[in-house]
Structures are given as structure tokens and as C-alpha cells.
Design a binder for these strands. Structure first.
Lengths: 297, 297
DNA sequence: CCACAATTGCAGCAATTCCTGCAAAACCAT
DNA sequence: ATGGTTTTGCAGGAATTGCTGCAATTGTGG
């Protein structure tokens, strides 16, 4: 816990006693430990302009058992930085222990970051294209992913698309997919542990020649193997429940992008909807906020 | 640029040709490269449960010159993630091409952060209590919030609770809520622009003397006024679509906490479910991972 | 300028990590 | 089952990386 601080503090504490060459190493570490964490003693030495031995002795001076020990500490520091929200680190004694809520929200933040990192804007755009021009859209999603499927379906419908969420229900997925045609788009949403019905349904659709998009958690998911286009959203689960924030966010982005693509149509049909919503009092009227323009600084 | 994609793409390309042991390595790398990047071949092998040799051969199969080469690639990937994220953090929305996806995911990260700051662990715990001891639970959620309601309902059901998601459907919310009793718990989920049906239904339940919990976006939301307990999840919308990542994450945390509260019961009923799942082949079997314990340090 | 101390780099040795031949085990299709 | 193929782990040698004695260098105060 205080491990990462240790490194910085050790350097600070001993900095005065260090020799010139060692000071330059210390300097480099403070500025670039995210690079240094991966270097061998020799490489680090060359980079800083000192010999390998000096680097080793530097580690010893700081009180480490050897260079590998120092290196490990840098790596821990790095890992910590990756997974922890800086805000939490800074906020003082406010939180006694990282409560469960915090752990889970933090985990979802990590998933979102990672998703952001791995998502390919090109693929994303092409998916938006596909959704835009597809005459019919089928969305496969079972169990927990069904909620995601419904969400996507609902918004695409709002945007004037012909959409059908296809869960296993009264009729099997296959039956519901018999009407799929080659121009149609099938979006499969599935995360570990992938439900077999979803995989089979998706496979069936692919074999029938439909265009296929997978929203899943990794390139090696069974859906990704079958799909024309794959969008990755991370969903590391560290409990028995899926962490679906990232997939949901991705789906939100998808729907938004589709909306942007056909701005005119969408605005028109939204205006129309507003009227309906108003007439039928769909929304609560105590706190009506009205339409909000995309703001954000 | 394409360096980091290379690793993923290589894995995807060769994944089919890999053996079982190698697949589990691939799996581990995709989920945990931030840890794997620091490990030696031997350590990685031990962690995944295969021999060092298999790890080395895995690297070769992917086309790398050896394990160090593969390792270097993971490190590059990691470094990239670090720098990208910090860049994104520092200048939100100021990127050269701030793609829509990034904007939206980033916005959701912001929502999660603010939710994390504003959530009260005490209230959260009390809500968990309430859920735990309630004989029946009703979850009100309409339109987009319906997905959230379904999600929560599904998991609570999995945990052995008597739950009913109450959307406007064949019968009105009121009709569905006539059976509510004073010991029962009603959870209302609603975000701007609050659907009137949800507010009215929630109000009705409150007047009937049920215990009430609101999951909503602010203390001044109509639901919060009526509820015994209120959980705040931020959902700043910067488009016509709600950003529901934070509420979803909060709900995930809720369900997890409830699960933890009754660990024994839950584990027992999960074991039972595992059997059922297995017998009926609910999950896809190519990539079966089995039950994973909550790990993380 | 000299003597002495501290620091540095080299070179070779020690330790770790990685690679590969080989036999046992697992798998698979008869 | 059975024979053949593939996969796996082990063991030991190869390569890399880290450590340290020693001599050269630098720096310093007299």
C-alpha cells in the first residue's frame, strides 16, 4: 500500500548522500519510471550515461536487495497507477477501507479506460455505417446481455430503425432468425461465460449470409471469430456478476453515433416524439427540464 | 501505433490453431496483460497452470522470436495505455480527433467518478440490509431504466430473492403493485426526464406503506423526495441518450453486496445453478472457464 | 603539486531466465 | 482398446542479466 510511496520517499531521503552519477539516475527515475520499470540495469545505465555497476550500486544505496528489487518496486508503482483513480489516492483519511461500492465502480472505470484504449475508431465507424444502412436489425443477447440488447434496440428504434431484440423466449432464436436476409444486420452481444444459445444463433445468422457485428469482450470470444466486425468492450468480472458498464457505454456511443449520422431524420422524428410525449404526459412534470443541447464545456 | 494491435491481432489470428494450454495463456494475457507484462516465462506459466516451456512455445507460435520479445510487446502495449490515458485525463476533449466513442466513454468515467464521490457507504449498506430482509421486492423502471431494472431483478433472483420488475405492460404499474405489503421493498429507478408512470407508481407504493429505495440522479429528483433511502448515481447526458454506465455499475455493486451478505446461501444456490447450467448446456463450451473466485490481489 | 578519499567502469563470475531434446501423457480417430 | 499424432513437462545446457573486486579516474584539501 505504501509501497509505491516508498520508492519516491527513499529517493528523496537519500538524495543528498548520492554521488553525481547516482543523482542523474535518481533524476531519470523520477521523471521516467514508467519507462525505467521495463529496463534492465544495463539498459538503464546506458540511457542515463553511466555504467551498469553504478545502477546496481544505486539500488543498493537506496536500501534494496539488488536491482531486480528496485525494478519490482517501480513496476508495482506503475501497476498501481494504472488501476487506481488518482482522486482516491489523494483524498486523505476520508475512506477507511475501499468499500465494495468503490471497488466495483473503480473496476468499471478501469474497464472503461481499457475499452477506450482498445476500441478501434475505424471499426466503430464501419459498424455505425452498417447500422445506418441495414434494412432490418436483429440483436441477439441472452441473460444479462439481454438488458444491453434491449437498451440498444430501444434507442435504435427511437432513431427510426427497424430493430428486433432476439432473446430465447416463446420461440427459439432460430425461428426468430429465419426471416433474416442477406442485407440485414445481426448484432450479437455476449460476454463470458457466453451463452450457447447466443453463439449458436449468431453462427446461424452468419451462415445465412447476414452481415454480422459482435459486441463482446475479446478478440478470441466465439462471437468475434464469426463476426464481420467486432467491437471490444472490457468486462472483467471479479465477482459472480458481470461488470457491464463499459459495454453499456459503448452501446450508448453506438446509438449516439447512429443518431449523429442521420441528424436531420433523427431531429425530425424526435420532434414528433416530443409532441407525443407531451400529449400523453409520458414524463413527469414537476421537474421538466426540456430538451438539452449537448453541452459539456 | 500498430504495435500494440499486433499482439491482439496475432492472438486472434492464431487462436484457432492453439492447443488447450496455450489458449489459457492467451486468455490470461488478454485479461491481465498489465500483470503479465512484468512476469518471467516461468512465473506466467505457474500462474496460468502450465509449464514454462509451454509459455515459451506459445510465444514462438505467435511468431515472436522468443518470450522476451512477446514480453516487450506487452510492455509497449502497457506503456501506450498509460500515456494515452494520462493524455486523455489531462486534456479532456481537447484531442486532435476526439472521436465520439472516446467522448462518451470519458463522460461515463466522469460520471462514475462523481458517483463514487457522492455515494454514501452508510446508505448503501442500509439498502443492502433492506434488500436482504425484504420478503418481496418490486422494481419500478420504465423505458431505458427498464433495462437497469431487469438487470437488477435478474441478479437478485439469481441470489434467491423474490423479485418482480414492474414495467408498464399488459397491466398498469398500479395493478401490479396492489399486492405490495408493508414489509415489502419497492425500488424505483428513474433518471431525467423521469417518466411519470414511474414516479406515480413509486408514490403509490410509498403511500401504501412499503419500504422504498430510489436509485436516481440527484437528491432533488421526484423519486428521492418520496423514498426512505436514496442512492445517487450520476447520469449526465450530453446527447439524447442517457449515460447509464454509472447507474449500472452501482446496481452491480448492490447485487454483489447482497450476494456477499448471504455468502453461504448464495454459494449453495450458485452451486446448484452450476449443475443446472451444466446439464442444460446453457453456456458455450469452447471457452468454458469454470467458476472464478473473486481474485484481485 | 601531492596525497588521500571517493567514485566510476571494466571484466569476469554468479544468478537468473530462457530455450530445446526427449520421454511421458493426453488426445483422437479408427 | 490400439496405434499414431499432438501436446506437455522435465532436465540440462545456452543466453542473458546482475553482482563485485580491482584498477583507473576524478575530485579535494592542504
Amino acid at each position: 500500500m505504501t509501497v509505491s510511496e516508498d520508492l519516491l520517499q527513499r529517493i528523496k531521503a537519500k538524495y543528498g548522500d548520492l554521488s553525481t552519477a547516482q543523482k542523474s539516475i535518481a533524476q531519470y527515475l523520477l521523471d521516467n519510471y514508467e519507462k525505467a520499470a521495463f529496463l534492465t540495469a544495463g539498459q538503464l545505465g546506458t540511457l542515463v550515461g553511466v555504467s551498469e555497476s553504478t545502477v546496481v550500486r544505486f539500488a543498493n544505496t537506496l536500501g534494496y536487495g539488488g536491482y531486480p528489487h528496485l525494478q519490482k518496486e517501480m513496476q508495482e508503482h506503475l501497476k498501481r497507477e494504472l488501476t487506481t483513480v488518482s482522486r482516491l489516492q489523494q483524498s486523505p483519511g476520508k475512506l477507511k477501507g475501499p468499500s465494495l461500492v468503490h471497488q466495483i465502480l473503480e473496476n468499471d472505470i478501469k474497464n472503461l479506460r481499457r475499452t477506450m484504449e482498445e476500441i478501434s475508431p475505424e471499426v466503430f465507424d464501419r459498424v455505425v455505417e452498417e447500422i445506418g444502412k441495414a434494412p432490418n436489425i436483429f440483436i441477439i443477447g441472452n441473460r444479462s446481455a439481454h438488458c444491453l440488447a434491449l437498451f440498444l434496440a430501444m434507442y435504435l428504434e427511437l432513431l427510426g430503425k427497424r430493430v428486433k431484440a432476439v432473446p430465447t423466449g416463446v420461440t427459439s432464436i432460430f425461428e426468430q432468425l429465419t426471416i433474416v436476409q442477406t442485407e440485414d444486420l445481426v448484432i450479437g452481444i455476449s460476454f463470458p461465460r457466453y451463452t450457447s444459445k447466443s453463439v449458436e444463433g449468431f453462427e446461424y445468422a452468419a451462415r445465412r449470409g447476414a452481415r454480422t457485428v459482435a459486441i463482446t469482450d475479446s478478440v478470441i470470444s466465439p462471437l468475434a471469430q464469426l463476426a464481420d466486425l467486432t467491437l471490444i468492450a472490457k468486462s472483467d468480472l471479479n465477482s459472480f456478476i458481470e461488470a457491464f458498464a463499459a459495454p453499456l457505454s459503448l452501446i450508448t456511443a453506438l446509438a449516439t453515433a447512429v443518431g449523429m449520422r442521420e441528424r436531420e431524420n433523427v431531429l425530425r422524428s424526435l420532434e414528433h416524439l416530443e409532441e407525443i410525449w407531451d400529449n400523453y404526459r409520458i414524463f413527469y412534470h414537476g421537474l421538466e427540464r426540456g430538451w438539452q443541447e449537448p453541452i459539456e464545456k
